[in-house]
Design a protein around this nucleic acid. Sequence first.
DNA 1: CGCTATTTCCAAAACGTTTTGGTAAAATGT
DNA 2: ACATTTTACCAAAACGTTTTGGAAATAGCG
Lengths: 349, 349
Amino acid sequence: MAVTIRDVAKRLNLSITTVSRALDGYDDVAEDTRERVRNAAAQMGYAPSHMARQMRRQRADTIGFAISLPPTARDNTNNRAFADPFVLEFIAGLGDEATQCHLDLIVSTATPGMEEETLFRRWVQGRRLDGVVVNRLRKDDWRVAYLTQNRVPFVASGHLQGATFPFIEVDGKSGFKRMVQYLAGKGHARIGYIGGPDGLRLQDDRLAGYRAGLRAAGLSFNKAFLAQGDMTRNGGYAAALQLLALPQRPSAILCVNDMTAIGAMRAARERGLVVGRDIAIAGFDGIADAEHTEPPLTTLNQPAYDIARALVQMLAQMIEDGRRGQSHVPKQVLLQPELILRQSTEGGN
Amino acid sequence: MAVTIRDVAKRLNLSITTVSRALDGYDDVAEDTRERVRNAAAQMGYAPSHMARQMRRQRADTIGFAISLPPTARDNTNNRAFADPFVLEFIAGLGDEATQCHLDLIVSTATPGMEEETLFRRWVQGRRLDGVVVNRLRKDDWRVAYLTQNRVPFVASGHLQGATFPFIEVDGKSGFKRMVQYLAGKGHARIGYIGGPDGLRLQDDRLAGYRAGLRAAGLSFNKAFLAQGDMTRNGGYAAALQLLALPQRPSAILCVNDMTAIGAMRAARERGLVVGRDIAIAGFDGIADAEHTEPPLTTLNQPAYDIARALVQMLAQMIEDGRRGQSHVPKQVLLQPELILRQSTEGGN
DNA sequence: CGCTATTTCCAAAACGTTTTGGTAAAATGT
DNA sequence: ACATTTTACCAAAACGTTTTGGAAATAGCG
């Protein structure tokens, strides 16, 4: 049905070789022939079939993003992968840079009834993609094992101990340490922490930062001040209620991410507390919403969009190197998050 | 490099035909042969190449989402396609249902330097996709013309006058009419409206609803109470400041969508007004954030997620019908948005 | 046993490109 | 005028499947 290269060739009494090469800009075709080909192609509405090209070139020109969700963050009716603005900004960065690199991006959204893992495996095995970006690594992540084994190029946002793959990580430990020290400096002595699900690398990291901060400030660690959410608003809400119900409630609460913090602020409001006066709350990520909350949220900003773009560039390079049989030196970057102070941590205690 | 169907066939001394048919479940292969094939395939880690399959079958098994952005909603560094939770929920629905229908979804994100249109044309011409979902139709939308001309199946969220294509639309006119009547009933006589960019179908629609509501409530239309945003938070903020600077400011403001309303609430707060007491503000969309704003936002809810899923189903059916040469009767649906009353419109005037 | 029906398998074509390894013709050099 | 290079083109192979149209072998039947 659609117009193929053969149709164009026939129309001009040329070989398909010449048509192909004319359009691809090879220099072994006469300038006026090239012009004739271009015109005919434009007029006939010809564009090379993407599938056929991929087939012949043996490359998918597609990268995948294997998003990892904590089980509680899914529900039956609605895929909540997209609910966190941080993840979204990240995806936007991936998408933009991918297009710029002439790559397509497919995002593995785990749907109810279909396991994330199944889908992902199908993609890799079906040579659907040339490379993968993974995020939110777990302590023992099947994805890195799988990708390494199948020799699929991949880059990570975050890293594991002694990683041999390329990654870009934002230093959550150092960030939260600074945050605790800041709060301690304002007189807070009872500082709580709402974390994410166990097994997540970033959770360990940020929790370690929290504890390091307490130590540095000469405060003792109190297990009762620890609560666990699931990195969603509702998770943060529930965890905060728990902390606020303590007989000696914390005067400040650090949250593993901004979404959690937004939930925590709601909990505080409902308990009749004015955030930024009666209690300090802070997050991590620097999502745009944090600027517009009431009160605006103190947070540690990570440049999700730029990180994503950089990761895609690294990945593209890696894929290219792999094709040429060159070995790739993994680039590994550690960034410092930026402490953004806003009203939610005003008022010492 | 990767293992192909030929490798499996060779290993078992079978033809590739048989291997293919064994795995695809055809009944002209002996049960024990099928078992042998299955085992060998699993053991050798064989999975059919997606590209080759597509090539042969002449179908991309992919649908596209052509997102339309007002120019002001883009900036140089960051793609703001993903900034609106409403769009996101919509995309999540598309993605989920697509996976369920064994389709892939690619989202056309217009990047700086690359025109949305160029990218989109490449996809269609390169037969990258079997069908398209379009949203935010413009009065004279090049996309519907283009898709119709190229005989690409598509469905729309929203519709145009006398549309011959399938669509699902939420009745913005009727919704805003009801909203105005509700506010008028609470005593508001000076009701403002912050719209979206011109040329957008939904803008006309909702504006018409606003005017119809005024008429029904016996209020006169005041041009000064009209402001224009760009459907983003910042657009809403700026437009609201303008309305609030009027000597006789509105006592209630309707916003074309929730993001605009969130911006407007910020503007009101900054002017020292308490939303829900000194001024009423309402939105449209029913995004999750609207529940968590301070105060929670009155809005007209549209089930973005479910609409998206339904659209994909319609599209899949359409594609299927097209393959069989059957003509397709376009299904056209008009839904009523649900009025959700929250604190932001408390307190009459 | 001879005939037809069923079962199980397969060779070859096709999908639409890009790439390889050419060949004639024209231009250039001696 | 002949050898050599350059220019402009092309036939055929390959990419990895699925599908078509059989063909042997086996089973069923009178």
